[in-house]
Amino acid sequence: MEQPRRTKAEIAAETREAILGAACEIIAEEGFEKIRMRMVAQRAGVSTAALHYHFDNREKLFAEALRHSFEHTGRDVYQGHADSDSATSRLARIISASLPTTASLRLEWAMYQELWCRANREPQSRALAIELSRAQQGWIEETLADGVACGEFTPCDTAAHARLISSLCDGFGVQLMFGNPSLTITEARAVIWQHAGGALGITTPFPAQDH
């Protein structure tokens, strides 16, 4: 049976997806300073003309690659779960997704480290770092508010507690990326969970994860 012909919009979307996926890999592997547009085009299997059609320069590509990776992580956290999903389970997924717990999240973390280095000296990178940090804190704050509203969590200052949880994830994530021999992912999650759960009335251990 003959397959339906793809539209120009579908082809463009697939090309953009391939470019962003390739950019994420190369930035994580080589660092932003070494990345070249032709390297991304080759990895994505597209022409340099197609790459430049979607992204004018490395800076725009870098920013969109980070947003692309962040959005994929967000979908993993929020989508594909039952309607009866609890705030506790969602908070646990957010904490896991905020640490380098899988190969794909290590790749995302490597890009964040590149971003943080650039944010110290470059205003656009600083703005992007703040944007993504606020979005991650927003996931946490929304989850805390949902848990408080349904009586699952003890009432608290959700904005302040979200900042605390986010900061703990960032701090432990850096140590895990550096390969601190005295720290494991299991230990990091347990400590974060202890501090996160204390104010929320959570007394159970960190929930088992699907990955």
Rank of each mutant, 00 (worst) to 15 (best):
R67K: 15
G179W: 05
H211W: 12
K8G: 10
A97G: 11
E17R: 15
A65T: 12
R38F: 07
E30V: 04
M37F: 08
L132V: 07
T101C: 09
M37I: 15
A12Y: 05
L51A: 00
H68P: 04
M177R: 12
V191G: 02
S69W: 02
I35V: 15
A18F: 02
I165E: 02
P181Q: 11
I95K: 10
T102A: 11
G138R: 14
H54M: 05
L115P: 04
A87Y: 07
F206Q: 10
A9C: 04
T88F: 02
R5K: 10
M1Y: 01
H72L: 05
T186M: 08
A28Y: 08
A9Q: 15
C150P: 06
E33F: 03
T203P: 04
G198M: 05
R163G: 03
R121A: 06
R67H: 09
L128F: 01
T88Q: 14
E152S: 09
N180V: 03
N180Q: 02
T7D: 03
D146W: 03
L128D: 06
L107H: 05
S167M: 09
G31M: 11
M1P: 05
D157L: 13
C169H: 04
L51F: 00
K60G: 15
D76S: 06
Y112A: 01
S98T: 07
A50F: 01
L164F: 02
C24G: 08
R93L: 11
H81Y: 10
I19P: 02
I165R: 01
T158G: 06
M177N: 02
P207H: 00
R134Q: 14
G198P: 00
R6C: 04
Y112T: 05
G138A: 13
E141Y: 01
G197P: 05
A23G: 01
R126E: 07
R106S: 07
H72E: 10
M37A: 13
A127Y: 04
H81D: 01
I192L: 09
D146F: 03
Q194E: 13
T186A: 12
T15F: 06
T186Q: 09
S96H: 14
L164E: 09
F55C: 04
C156K: 08
I11D: 08
F178C: 07
R75N: 10
F55L: 01
M39I: 04
G198W: 12
G198Q: 12
E30F: 00
R5Y: 09
A162G: 07
F62G: 10
I27Y: 13
L99F: 06
R106N: 04
I202D: 07
P155H: 07
A50E: 10
L91P: 08
E59V: 15
A159H: 11
V77A: 12
P207Y: 04
